[in-house]
Design a protein around this nucleic acid. Structure first.
Lengths: 219, 219, 219, 219
DNA sequence: AATGAATGAGTCTTCATTCAT
DNA sequence: AATGAATGAAGACTCATTCAT
């Protein structure tokens, strides 16, 4: 006779719609990944808004309900993609500069790693770019970007303190680096280069590092 | 009862649907401007996809017919906004460097003018950014971007030829400048700066010029 | 160049979704009525939840958009039906007792008018009944019911003050009257009478008045 | 891949889909009760249609399969709730008047018992009310109501035959009693009373008896 | 030039129900 | 007995666009 609700569905008043916290089986986790991967591709190719949930589930060949079993909404899925991607980018950069002592080399290797990641994950790079333009996702993207910038600032400040580079606003520098990286990877690796010569990911990474380091007039 | 979209009379040979070629009265031109201005604001604030034609005409307080009297589609309006904006940006930059002989100063003043334009037209800057992410508009935006880059390349090449700056790929440099400009104006003037100090348009422009010129290590 | 929004769509923060305030033409007003009438019938016959917006527009033979041109949601339409009906019921009762001096006769004629209204508007009666059971509409229905009870209480109190009827809680009496009216009109005029003899609206009205007046033991 | 609803093994000759006839263990019976109790609460609070099977099983913290192990459908569960409740109400009333000889007192005590039951089972009272408004359940509810009325009629007729109360249509009287009981318990015990004073279940029961007995004008 | 009305395919999302394990 | 996964029809609602007036 006792009515003991063991579990409330979703904490109400939650700012951003959270994922349905489910205990997933192996098969479930696989499905979830599959949805994320396929959706990433479609979002990158066709855009977030133009890609419908129906497109996604049809593309995978499952029923519509499957989507909502794993994600509470299309927006939540997208946010999830962004979060994962940002985490991965950060991890990649950290790994690349681990063990390097010279702050300037840390900066350079960080830039290179960032550029390579962008080159290797063109879909995710595009999603970042879109997310920045959409009211619903700016917030999500800024959290990661702030951390990203903070990471770079740390090394820039160290280099400045060590007298290795001129003393300029490190936050502005970090953003400059970000801008160059985005623009060049997009231009040379995304087919956006108007008449620009095709280049390999490594070449582009070198280019990014060089421009970030010297500007157009430096050295 | 069936709704069969009819082709509007278009300029022949025009690849994308063009505006209905109308001879507008003074009042008509004003209406058109009003639509463009209001739509620009809404597109920038809420996004292109989330903003419906109904939002636009309701916001102005006119009927739906008005919209389709001046534009053949929502896409056409957006394309028109982009085209006008790109033209305006270019004109602004050209005016800024007119009469300057030193190629390096031309570059710097061009950068400054570009950054100032972005700072003064934040809505349009956002629309550029979005347009790059949407399959339907990349083409439109690239035409202008290519010209924009070409302009910069011309001066960079001149500076290189004159031995005023090191000999590096001017196309890459031009793109780097673009990236820095976008990122910094966005960061410091669009509220996107995570903890970054607020700055005036002029300060930001100086910052952009400085970073583009020297990179993080130069000078 | 000026952007002058003449009219915002809907006051945001509005508790209940309000109707899209439109200037309707004669044809528009007719459509709206048609939708209300048809929906009333379907809601009464099949229930509010089981009746879909598609059912309604299909039944009338118009496109789905028509519905949302006139009503902002299915709920809003239903609320509108309730409001109109309650107003009509009240007007009917007021007209019926206008000019009667004796408070007891006012009560009796009010009851009779109420019962007749219910008998003549079985669909609306059913909707009232449903609305009381649905979280989303109780509030809407109670506003009217409170007024309805207040009206009755006024006359009951007058009769008590004049020593024409025993001094009992008039609010409780008013609710009792309501209960009898609902139950009997439903039973005898809605096909809900289990084995009960069919009766005319007038007969039922007499029955309601008689029972309300005397109870089972009185007189 | 196709989903073809299969007939669950039903008691043959059963008009509506009946519960799977299972021999339940002690634990099984408890689960079933738990489902019924929790569902009753949700149906009463949120409505039958708005409450999904998922809501119910999630609220209890079990899988979907559990639900369909004990009930063949959501409708069947609801019907079951109604049936049980009606049986319980009847039993309560019968017990209350057992051993009373005077038919008038039998009527009064029956009314009181009914009112008290409603007061003590507000959720079930609400479900009765809803069931009367939904095409799918009217039939189920009427069976019980008919019996309920028949019970009352029996005593009313006895009282009339004994000359203890005036000779009026006992069926109508019985329905009148029902209407008063529903309306007053709802008003005073369900928070539906617009400005009406809160009262205890016993007070309300007294009120109901008094009004049913005397009407508004009788002694 | 402009309006209110209308279209209907398409969007996101829900939900009763089934099934393999 | 019970679970997580899946189904897919159906629901409410949107929206670019067209049309009669």
């Amino acid at each position: 006779m006792s009515v003991v609700p063991r579990q409330t569905t979703n904490a109400p008043g939650d700012p951003a719609a959270a994922a349905p916290e489910r205990k997933l089986t192996a098969r479930g986790r696989e499905r979830r990944s599959q949805l994320i991967d396929y959706a990433t591709k479609r979002f990158a190719d066709d855009g977030f808004h133009p890609t419908s949930v129906a497109d996604i589930v049809d593309g995978i060949g499952v029923g519509k309900g499957v989507f909502y079993w794993y994600f509470s909404s299309k927006e939540e899925l997208f946010t999830e993609i962004l979060r994962t991607a940002q985490t991965d980018l950060r991890r990649t950069q950290r790994k690349a500069i681990g063990g390097i002592d010279d702050p300037v080399r840390r900066i350079e290797e960080g830039i290179r790693a960032g550029a390579l990641w962008m080159a290797n994950n063109p879909d995710l790079r595009r999603l970042f770019e879109f997310a920045r333009t959409d009211e619903s996702f700016v917030k999500a993207i800024r959290i990661g970007q702030r951390r990203h910038v903070a990471d770079a600032v740390e090394h820039l400040q160290a280099a400045i303190d060590a007298g290795l580079i001129p003393d300029r606003d490190p936050v502005a520098l970090a953003h400059g680096i970000l801008g160059v990286t985005n623009q060049l990877t997009m231009t040379y690796l995304d087919g956006a280069g108007g008449g620009a010569t095709k280049r390999s990911a490594e070449e582009v990474a070198d280019l990014v590092v060089s421009i970030c380091r010297n500007g157009f007039a430096g050295e």
